[in-house]
Amino acid sequence: MEKKKYQDIVKKYTPQEDRTYHGIVAFVIGGVMGVLGQLLLDLYANWFHLPTTDAAPFMIITLIFFASLFTSLGFFDKWVAWAKAGLIIPITGFAHSMMSAALEYKKEGFVTGIGANMFKLAGTVIIFGVVSSYLFGFIRLVIFGG
């Protein structure tokens, strides 16, 4: 009886996560990032007279630059905490994870700190991306002929 009462009280005071709100925020912010990407693609294609496919690296570098800069200035963490998947899933999340690892381990020195820990969070993305691409690439090469 005591235990049940206790659990009820705990349940009452656990902060309720509003999943609908989180979902809407992630959808809108993610969508805005997508529009931003398309906008930058068009801008670079016009400025440098590039075909749109060649402007893609320019766009990705720009997004990574601003994500790294805003993270090191300190306020991007708050944005990520608010928008969650809306900023983690775009390429900004990749840059944010590397930048925050570099900043956090800076005090442990250049080699053992920044060098050893920069890929601590982003490394899984690269490793599983490479392994799965190798497997799927192999399948596509053997079955569909490339």
């Binding site: 990705i60 570098i61 990574i64 630059f65 790294s68 800069l69 993270t71 090191s72 200035l73 300190g74 990749f94 840059a95 590397m98 930048m99 925050s100 690892a101 570099a102 900043l103 956090e104 800076k106 005090k107 920044i114 920069m118 982003a122």
Partner: peptide, 15 residues
Amino acid sequence: AAIVFSFFFSLIFKA
């Protein structure tokens, strides 16, 4: 880009 920017920004800024 992520490696280079992260490295140089981490030299300039503090956590």
